[in-house]
Simulated scan of single mutants.
Amino acid sequence: MSRARFERSVAYHCAPALVGLKPASLISLSAEDYPALPRLAADYSRLLAARGIRMEVLCRCRRRFLLLVYRPALLERCLRSAPVAELLAETGYPVGDSCAALLRRLSSRITAGGAFPHELGLFLGYPPGDVAAFMAHGGSNCRLCGEWKVYQDVEGARRQFQKFALCRSALCTRLAQGRSLLGLLGAAEYPAA
């Protein structure tokens, strides 16, 4: 497992969360390629804590890990907003629980099997109206498909998608030039092995 490869994957898939444009991003990583991912995520979380960024394995099966990269303060604010809290309550999340408790509940819903918990979009900062419409329409009839399926504010979503693409490009370009993800985020470097 290469830390450089891990950083490139995280930068590409999670750039908007890493720079604070959204509260969280989710990435699926191969357990074969990253057998020590839980330890690696914990190490990066520790090194990035002062920058307000966490990494947490939400789910692990035999073949894959689902890694959540998030900004706890931003995610907490997002989950406490009235429309998000209302939709979470409608999908069975206890009102008023902490962000950590809501993440544990989400993790247990993912690992339980059965229907995928599409309320995950709320944790990723998708507009609650789009998440509700996705759940109501089973993912059909969206007006735009990009970072998420858009049912309401198409122009606002397009602008957001462009910001995400620019941020992803800038971060990945700097990594390709030899910089480390930790260095780009202003964190302490990973200890030498």
Rank of each mutant, 00 (worst) to 15 (best):
Y12G: 12
K163N: 11
G114N: 08
A85S: 10
A187D: 04
L68I: 10
R46L: 15
D130G: 02
V131Y: 00
S81F: 02
V69W: 00
H137A: 14
R71D: 04
M135A: 05
A49Y: 00
R179V: 12
G156Y: 03
R39T: 13
S45N: 05
L175V: 09
S107P: 05
L122D: 02
P128K: 05
L48S: 09
A49E: 11
L184V: 05
G138R: 04
A133R: 04
L181C: 01
C59Q: 14
S180N: 05
R64S: 14
I110S: 03
P83N: 10
L26I: 06
A4R: 11
A176W: 01
L79S: 00
R77G: 15
L18V: 05
A188W: 04
R3G: 15
F161D: 06
S28H: 03
W148C: 08
V154A: 03
P94I: 13
L175E: 06
R54D: 11
S140H: 14
S25V: 09
C59H: 15
E7G: 10
H13E: 14
Y34M: 08
F65M: 06
G146I: 07
A73M: 10
V131K: 02
V69K: 03
V95K: 13
L184H: 02
L37M: 08
V95L: 14
A24V: 03
S45E: 09
I27P: 00
L47N: 05
L74C: 11
A170W: 04
P127F: 02
F116Y: 01
L181V: 04
D153S: 01
I27E: 08
R143T: 09
L185N: 00
L79I: 07
G121S: 04
A192K: 09
G186Y: 01
F164A: 07
H13G: 14
Y12T: 14
E7T: 02
K163W: 03
R143W: 03
M55W: 02
L18H: 07
R60F: 08
G121D: 10
A157V: 07
T111K: 04
L21I: 08
E189H: 08
R54A: 11
L21N: 06
D153F: 07
L67A: 05
L185H: 03
A115H: 11
D130R: 00
E76V: 09
A17R: 07
S108P: 01
R71T: 12
A136W: 04
R63N: 14
L29I: 09
N141E: 15
R158A: 10
R159S: 11
R143G: 07
Y93T: 10
L79A: 05
V84A: 05
G146K: 00
A192T: 15
M1E: 14
E56W: 09
G92W: 08
R174M: 09
G20S: 01
I110N: 05
P127D: 03
E32D: 13
R77Q: 15
G146R: 00
L74R: 08
A115R: 14
Y151N: 02
L67Y: 00
S45I: 05
G114Y: 04
K163T: 12
C99V: 15
R159C: 09
A82C: 10
L66A: 12
R80Y: 09
A187I: 12
S169K: 10
